[in-house]
Structures are given as structure tokens and as C-alpha cells.
Design a protein around this nucleic acid. Structure first.
Lengths: 192, 192
DNA sequence: GCTTTTCGTTGACATTTGTCAACGGCATTT
DNA sequence: AAATGCCGTTGACAAATGTCAACGAAAAGC
């Protein structure tokens, strides 16, 4: 169960873990199973855990005044879930995070993670690497949102994340791209 | 000249610098003056410096196939400028960064900054704090881009950054919000 | 196996936003 | 003072996208 995570850490930290470090990590990250539609975090709640997806698929989204859901993130195996702002500031989250498919997570508590960063340097390195990747991805997505047409956003997405097209229904993809499901349906039709 | 930066660092690192550390920082950060419209970074170039704005106003933007500029960031006093992706990956940047007003910067080279992080722990702390703030701001802006109408994006922006309304012309604000200057003009008219 | 939900599509129409051209005001330059 | 360029606004119109309703197919639940 923890093997995937341990391998993931050494891969992104570019260094391997000692047996002791592996033990520390395995102790702090607890397995958790989520059923379909089950919440990992609900709007208004404080994000006190981060989760690593071992198997499954999840989404993070906000809900507007009209009750419409807006997907800010889709995540499958080997992705991290959690709301960074709420986690860092201990403020109520603006987002919901739930399981789209039945999902196996390894979750870690805030305090434990902060300790682990001291004890397992590779984990801190990995976290920094993830932060950087996340920052770069956000910048690109933001630029796409203000610069590109819905059609280009979709074809870029399909090129960059073909696996998501299989994994998530079109209305979630549409929401992620900031358009309605009807518009996405028409764009796809036109791309043939 | 360096006073502003030194104070900024201790403020965000929540710790003060020794005289030796101040010396190291002051040596590594070189003053640079940019005239209006002068580039700090051009598309295709690799971002080898980061800049701290002591006085002035700048913008970061991409240019699409039609030659239209899309502003991804506006920055004034006490902001950092640079393209993170290019800086981290040493790849050609997708963005231009230039001075909107005459600007005084303190710039630091990649290698020097990496060394400084070892020698001045407070600087590394500050950088981490900036990374976190940047990540939170990106998440919010992304959510706004896919969730809110142009009108709401503008009024939120006006509430959060009233100083920018004075500092930058409307067509730059419009671009930052992902709309045209005509649309922004009409939105403003309607908000009265 | 049957029922219920979810999903994707389509049509008709409304709304939002963009495009293009023109104009006047204002500041800067010469 | 005149000329120039930049800026914000407006009108007429076009294009993109959203809304609402309906339908059938597929999947999920019972």
C-alpha cells in the first residue's frame, strides 16, 4: 500500500529513503478508502489533511450562488489532493473535494507532515518539487484561461491529459475548462 | 536602496538579519533602472534573474498568434518579477516582462540566489512564504476565471487591488481580467 | 430484470463578449 | 503652438458561449 508513495517520493526527491525513513513515512500516512461521491473536504471545513491517491479518481470544485459546480482540479493515481490555502492558513475552504471513483488514499495530518519534513529530508525535497510543478501548471492554465478560445483550451487539454478524457465524463472536463457541457459537445463535434 | 528589500525579507521571514547577512544580500542584489517599455525579459529568452521592484510598475504578458497581448501579471513596489517556469527549467520563456513606468529594480542572478538560500536562511524562508502566497493567489484567480462573470471578476479586482486601478490603464486591467478594453469600459459604465 | 439516474447530444433562442471603426480628450514631444 | 500618440468611450454588428428543454443511450442501483 505504501510502496507507491515511497517510490514516488524517492523519484521526485531524486534520492532514496533509508529503511528508517520509510518506516516514519509509512506510520504517518494512513490508508483511507473513499466511496464514490464521498467527501474528502467540504466547503467551509478546514483542510487538516493532505491525501495521496494510490488508486482512484477525485475532483476539487467550488459551487457558485446558482449552485453550479466549477471544477478547479481533477486528480487520479499519484496526485495529491487538498486545499492549500485552507491548509496553510487554517481558514474555511472555498472548495469541495470528493471521490469520483472509489478511491484509496494515503492521508497525512498537518502536524505529522510538518514533523516528517524535519525527519525525512527527501520528503521536503519532494514537496518543494511538487510546489514548483504546481506553480508552473497554474501559470500555464491561467494564461490559457485568459488567452485562448474554448476550442484551443480543449485541444490542448486533450493533448496534455488524454488519460483524463477516459476517466472523467465530459461535463466535468467542460467545467474544468470553464465552459458548459453543451459547448464542449459542440466543440468536439466540430473537431471531427 | 537595499533597505526596502532587507526590511521586506525580515518581515516575511518573521526574523531579522544579521549585519553579515545584510551584506551578503546587498552584494548579490544589484540595482537596475528600467526606462518605460524597456524589457526585463523577452519571450524566447531564458529567465536568469529575478527582480524585486523598489519603485515603479511592470507587467508580464504573453502575445498570441494575432499579436494580441495577454497580461498575466501586474506588479508594483515590493513585488517580484520573473518567469518561474523558465527560471526553474532553464527553458525559453513564453512571456515578456517590461516596465510600464520607469522602474528601479534589485536583480539577483540564479546562481547567486541559490547560494544565498544556503547562507541566509531567512531569505529561503521568505521565498517559501512568497511561493505559498503565489500559489494561493493563483488558485483564486484560476477559480475566478472559470467561475465568475467578467463583471464579478472586475469588481473583485477593484476591491482587492484598488491601487492598480490608479496605476495601470484600463486596457491592461481588461487584459489581466481576460476581456477586451471595450467590454471593461461597458462594465464600468453599468456599475454606476 | 426492471427502474432510475447519469450522460452526451441537439435545436431554438438569449446573452455575453468580441470586432471594427470612429471620435474626442489628454498628455507628451517637437 | 502644432503634431503625434495613447487612452477611454461609443455604436453597429458579428461571433462565441450560455440557457433551457427534450431525447435516447448507457450505466448504476435495486
Amino acid at each position: 500500500m505504501h510502496e507507491t508513495l515511497l517510490q514516488y517520493i524517492s523519484q521526485y526527491a531524486k534520492s532514496s529513503l533509508t529503511d528508517e525513513e520509510k518506516g516514519l513515512v509509512s506510520t504517518a500516512f494512513l490508508p483511507k478508502k473513499l466511496r464514490k461521491k464521498q467527501y474528502f473536504l467540504q466547503e467551509g471545513g478546514v483542510c487538516k489533511h493532505f491525501g495521496f491517491i494510490v488508486h482512484g479518481a477525485m475532483r476539487q470544485y467550488s459551487v457558485d450562488e446558482k449552485g453550479i459546480e466549477h471544477v478547479v482540479q481533477l486528480a487520479t493515481e499519484n496526485w495529491w489532493v487538498g486545499d492549500r490555502e485552507s491548509y496553510l492558513m487554517l481558514t474555511p475552504s472555498l472548495y469541495n473535494i470528493d471521490a469520483w471513483e472509489e478511491t484509496n488514499l494515503l492521508i497525512v495530518e498537518r502536524a505529522d507532515l510538518l514533523n516528517l519534513f524535519q525527519e525525512v529530508p527527501a520528503l521536503a525535497l519532494m514537496a518543494r518539487e511538487m510546489d514548483n510543478r504546481n506553480a508552473m501548471a497554474s501559470q500555464r492554465r491561467l494564461n490559457a484561461a485568459i488567452s485562448f478560445s474554448a476550442e484551443k483550451r480543449y485541444s490542448d487539454f486533450a493533448k496534455d491529459h488524454p488519460e483524463f478524457l477516459q476517466r472523467f465524463p465530459q461535463h466535468l472536463i467542460a467545467s474544468y475548462l470553464g465552459i458548459t457541457k453543451e459547448t464542449l459537445s459542440r466543440i468536439r463535434k466540430q473537431l471531427m
